[in-house]
């Protein structure tokens, strides 16, 4: 069992938890992920490591309530435990001195970009961070991101914070002003694809962290296969980071739709169990 040592709601339906998992905390690096399973009937869910505290044996995860498992995880409290917590999985980010790094994140992607820019900053890179969200309320981790960035810019769809528009609009402006050595993008597939399209024109190296459906996360099942430069790769072993200009985006989008109907059934069932009081008498 793995204990939830702290839990905080950092945005609407977005939670930050620290889990006691000393071995994961010791070897976990930026860019890697864990797989958790809440109980004996649970599914295996991958989540990016948002940070580690090896001295106290803690691993930080940040997640949004989207499906049954994340809703159930959100229903647990500090002091509760989850059944399984395996990791670190996948390859770590290649941390080195690039020069000017632009980190682009959409939504909860901000949580995934945080440990990466932290390490890249230590490697003496200049960090320009661009965060996108639908509106101001959905922006998370502003203070922490500011600490790790030389400049922090925002884009919101409704203009309630930063520039009105998309992260790509801000990225274009930055590209006009700065000589960028590498772009690192994490977020929803359409966002990552849009970033890749822009940087490809200008030949700027771009890395994305992909989030396909996974099962074991150790290279055994092939659920997370993605096509990179025409070749099949496994996101859990070869990734999760890939060259954004070589990703087959349409395939990734369609493969993410695979279990949408069943996932909804599972979530509806869970919500019904939580809300329905008749059987609890």
């Amino acid at each position: 069992m793995y204990k939830i040592v702290s839990k905080k709601e950092i945005g609407p339906k977005v939670h930050s938890c620290e889990i006691y998992a000393p071995e994961v905390a010791k070897n976990g690096k930026a860019g890697q992920f864990i797989i958790f399973r809440i109980d004996d009937k649970g599914e295996r869910v991958p989540l990016t490591i948002a940070g580690t505290n090896p001295n106290e044996g803690l691993v930080r995860i940040i997640f949004q309530e989207v499906g049954k498992s994340t809703a159930q995880l959100a229903s647990l409290n500090e002091g509760d435990s989850i059944k399984d917590f395996a990791g670190p999985l996948g390859c770590p980010t290649d941390i080195k001195h690039y020069g000017v790094v632009v980190a682009v994140a959409g939504g909860v992607g901000a949580a995934e970009v945080l440990p990466v820019i932290k390490e890249l900053k230590k490697a003496k890179n200049k960090i320009l961070t661009i965060i996108g969200a639908r509106c101001k309320d959905l922006i998370i981790l502003e203070d922490e991101l500011k600490q790790e960035s030389d400049s922090l810019l925002f884009a919101t769809n409704d203009g309630t914070y930063g520039r009105k528009g998309f992260v790509t609009d801000v990225l274009k402006e930055v590209m006009n002003k700065e000589k960028i050595n590498i772009v690192y993008a994490i977020g929803p597939v359409p966002m990552m694809k849009a970033v890749a399209d822009i940087t490809k024109e200008k030949h700027i190296e771009t890395v994305v962290s992909l989030n396909p459906i996974m099962l074991d996360g150790t290279g055994m099942c092939g659920a997370c296969r993605v096509t990179i430069d025409g070749k099949t790769k496994f996101a859990c072993v070869d990734g999760p980071e890939f060259d954004a200009h070589l990703v087959h985006w349409e395939e990734l989008s369609s493969r993410l739709q695979l279990f949408k109907n069943l996932e909804q059934i599972s979530l509806d069932n869970f919500n019904h169990r939580v809300e329905c009081k008749c059987r609890k008498k």
Binding site: K41, G42, E43, R44, K68, S69, L215, D216, M220, C221, F259, L262, E263, I265, S266, N269
Partner: peptide
């Protein structure tokens, strides 16, 4: 693995589809 390890034949009683 979905069926044997994750018991998805018993979905949604088990979470894995």
């Amino acid at each position: 693995a979905r069926v044997n390890l994750m018991r998805s034949f018993d979905f949604p009683n088990f979470d894995t589809p």
